[in-house]
Write a protein that binds this DNA or RNA. Structure first.
Length: 482
RNA sequence: GCCGCCUUCGUCUAGUGGUUAGGACAUAGCGUUCUCAACGCUAGAAGAUGGGUUCGAUUCCCAUAGGCGGUGCCA
């Protein structure tokens, strides 16, 4: 049995798209489920739009996600180079071979001519096909035009036959001969085109399974014709359903972020993104929804992948993220939250880490994305200016004062330093003072938080520590006097 | 226009020739409660349409519609 080899082949012409991540993930899961290899190939044949910094972003992105390549640029492997711009000799060799064997030909048609043909087909309600005009030119004529310096593209001779293949996800897919024409495989500037390079490289890199987005479904017959012309065995194809905008169009930045690194910067965890993405178009047929990457690998079966596109639903991503944020060890949560807090000016190098840890412990259940941490915690670091009237929103000035004072006496003496015991102790106070829970807890909580909405009094005390608690209680008491 | 693919709650989806069509997110209500969350419970919410086949179809077949993708000397 041949070893399974899959690849993800992005072009570095823009920021890394979340769709690339999804395609990469499914290729990774499939390869690893079969103990095979997962590789990265950079498709930088478009010299104008390809940028090294985008390639770097792709590497960085996959690394962050924990999807490790077995082969790729900067990684090596036996099938390199893994950058198409470094494989041009191979493409030229194959072009010559096709030309020499009469399987392809030079086309001297101008853009204007081709445009005219296309318009005519459209008028007649026919699919736009190249006329094949240059296919019938004699060898001498081609040579003459070439010697005159006429620019030309290279077209593949496409046999007039229907193409059928079996897609792992879609089943049998047939394309009729009449929509296929002699397509261009090499530009007039001598650079090769996608369909051509993809076939050459997938074969050269011994790719066994081509797993890619459904937008490539209509490229597949062309590639199959190329495989046949070159006399190569076909890989297995699988076309993944598309990631969609809320309006069901192909996912784009029109409706929000599509760049992977933006998700990271907004405070999404890689595990959450992976878990969420894996469940878009596939599920393990159980009610279980949280899977680690290794668990996904063992549960994954590509035949179970759905055919219909899936809307990228942010609310559900948030739900997954919240789950994984809660599961984070405290140290890790501190580490990951720190940059956000630092940016917001809430912490500095000198800030006590354990204090930050106490604060995060209190708010961690309400964190959906890490970027929310500053707004969720700012009042711990700095008492906000608040209206003294807020202190007496529940109860009177007298009950508020009473409550604050009793709490202040606790801080001046000993009190339990674990949340459960402290909570139990505080719960005794309203009855002891002969007031309601609200009359006791509301003013004390407001005194500590400086705002109407916050964690409980006990939690605030735990996070703030004794000194700060005392300070805030005194501030509140003085406010009540005025 | 032409070609292809697709179609179960708002969203992600499960499942089945006879089911109260299941779960999750979201939404709403209730509970808990010192507020906000969190949490718990409850509720509403779905097989595009039309034809067949069948005792019976969401499930099988056909057609239509709609959506999306492709239609490049982009990838």
């Amino acid at each position: 049995m041949a070893i399974v080899r899959t690849r993800v082949a992005p072009s570095p012409t823009g920021h890394m798209h979340i769709g690339t991540v999804r395609t990469g993930l499914f290729n990774y899961l499939f390869a690893k489920a079969h103990h095979g290899a997962f590789l990265l190939r950079i498709e930088d044949t478009d010299p104008v739009r390809s940028k090294p910094e985008y390639e770097a972003e792709i590497l960085k992105g996959f690394k962050w996600l924990g999807l490790e390549f077995d082969e790729g640029p900067n990684l090596g492997g036996n099938y390199g180079p893994y950058r198409q711009s470094e494989r041009l000799d191979l493409y030229r060799e194959k072009t010559s071979w096709l030309l020499d064997n009469g399987l392809a030909y030079q086309c001297f048609c101008t853009e204007a001519e081709l445009e005219k043909v296309k318009e005519k087909s459209a008028q007649q309600g026919l699919p736009p096909r190249y006329s094949g005009k240059c296919r019938t030119r004699s060898r001498d004529e081609r040579l003459r035009l070439q010697n005159e310096g006429q620019p030309f593209t290279v077209r593949l001779i496409v046999p007039r036959e229907d193409i059928t293949f079996t897609d792992l996800i879609h089943g049998a897919v047939t394309t009729k001969a009449e929509v296929l024409d002699d397509f261009v495989i090499v530009r007039s500037d001598d650079t090769p085109l996608y369909n051509f390079t993809a076939v050459i490289d997938d074969h050269a890199m011994a790719i066994t399974h081509v797993i890619r987005g459904e937008d490539h479904l209509s490229n597949t017959p062309k590639q199959i014709i190329l495989y046949r012309a070159l006399g190569w065995e076909l890989p297995v194809f699988a076309h993944l359903p598309l990631l969609l905008n809320p309006d069901k169009s192909k996912m784009s930045k029109r409706f929000g972020d599509v760049e992977l690194l933006r998700f990271r910067d907004e405070g999404y965890l890689s595990q959450a993104l992976i878990n969420f993405l894996a469940f878009l178009g596939w599920n393990p047929k159980t009610d279980r929804e949280f899977f680690t990457l290794p668990e996904l690998i063992s549960a994954f079966h590509i035949e179970q992948v759905n055919k219909a596109g899936a809307i990228f639903n942010r609310a559900k991503l948030d739900y997954f993220n919240q789950h994984y944020v809660r599961a984070l060890p405290l140290d890790r949560l501190i580490e990951l939250s720190w940059p956000y807090l630092e940016n917001a000016g809430l912490v500095a190098e000198s800030t006590d880490r354990s204090m930050v840890g106490r604060v995060l412990t209190v708010v961690r259940d309400r964190i959906r994305t890490l970027s929310e941490v500053p707004s969720l915690t700012d009042f711990f670091f700095l008492l906000p200016a608040y209206d003294p009237a807020l202190l007496t929103e529940k109860g009177s000035k007298a009950t508020a004062k009473q409550s604050l004072e009793i709490l202040l006496t606790f801080t001046e003496k000993e009190y339990p330093r674990d949340l459960t015991s402290l909570t139990d102790l505080l719960k005794l106070q309203p009855a002891a003072l002969g007031i309601s829970n609200g009359e006791f807890f509301w003013p004390t909580r407001v005194a500590l938080a400086g705002k109407a909405q916050s964690p409980s009094t006990a939690e605030m005390m735990m996070a703030l520590g004794n000194t700060e608690t005392q300070t805030r209680l005194r501030v509140a008491l003085s406010r009540l006097e005025t």
